[in-house]
């Protein structure tokens, strides 16, 4: 059965108070098209589990790019090792985020990139959590169980089992088998495995048999909905050159 559907239809599975996992490490591999669809869905009180929360420099969201910050009005809690409001020119000022947090409208849980991945892995495989040697006696261990096993100290980290995973791949077949390109792979395969329901945005959809079976990174069993980015969207394969030009401007704005 084909898993192709529209973003609208896919988003009907997202509800108030859900935990959403998504990849973000710059624009590469981040589901920018689905972020916009989630805004349109209008659900609230979401928990957002994301490796990085990096807003665009000022003015680029207005020009059609998206970033996780557009979800802020719908988000109650962010679980992320890196919130990039400080130090880089951004769409959001640190003060804005800080005020949200102070008013109790936004909760922030920190982690490390590696531990966040292991927590998702634990969620994916049904483990009850992990004992991590990373983070012992640091700010990420505050309020967590510390345990010594064979003379090494560990901190207990709970598993993460997101309700919905929003991911991006290069190509999908109609069965939901996915291939990625370059560093856009990111946390996408793991988020697909850890989430109860996974929605993927792709540049291109092909028929079963077109993708080399050996090259498939995420087998279709982990994917529920395949959304092909419409040609007219800035994130579509058709407008790739334009997007790259826009990103060159983003780099300049960040002084890179």
């Amino acid at each position: 059965m084909s898993k192709i559907c529209t973003a609208d239809k896919a988003m009907a599975r997202v509800h108030d108070s859900d935990m959403i996992a998504a990849h973000n490490w710059g624009i590469s591999g981040s589901p920018g098209y689905l972020f916009r669809a989630l805004v349109e869905r209008g659900v609230k009180d979401l928990t957002l589990c994301i490796p990085n929360f990096i807003p665009m420099p000022e003015g680029f969201v207005e020009r059609g790019l998206t970033d996780p910050s557009i979800l802020l009005p719908q988000v109650r809690k962010i679980i992320s090792p890196f919130i990039g409001a400080r130090g880089i020119l951004s769409n959001l000022s640190e003060t804005f985020l800080s005020n949200l947090a102070k008013e109790g409208r936004l909760e922030i849980e920190t982690s490390t990139h590696g531990i966040l991945m292991e927590r998702l892995y634990a969620g994916a495989t049904g483990l009850g959590g992990i004992y991590s040697p990373v983070g012992v006696d640091t700010i990420v261990a505050e309020g967590k169980e510390k345990r010594n096993i064979d003379e090494v100290d560990y901190v207990f980290e709970k598993p993460l089992r997101p309700d919905v995973g929003l991911i991006k791949a290069d190509k999908a077949d109609t069965l939901g088998n996915l291939v990625y390109r370059g560093s856009a792979r990111g946390a996408n395969p793991l988020i697909a495995m850890a989430s109860k329901y996974t929605i993927v945005e792709v540049f291109d959809v092909v028929e079963p048999g077109v993708l080399e079976p050996e090259m498939i990174v995420t087998p279709g069993v982990f994917v529920d909905c395949v959304v092909r980015i419409p040609d007219e969207d800035i994130y579509s394969g058709k407008r790739r050159t334009e997007l790259i030009q826009l990103l060159a401007e983003v780099m300049l704005a960040r002084g890179m």
Partner: peptide, 14 residues
């Protein structure tokens, strides 16, 4: 600190 600012730990601890 974890309480008053925003985390930018990233992968540094790992």
């Amino acid at each position: 600190s974890s309480t008053d600012k925003f985390p930018q730990i990233g992968g540094s601890m790992d």
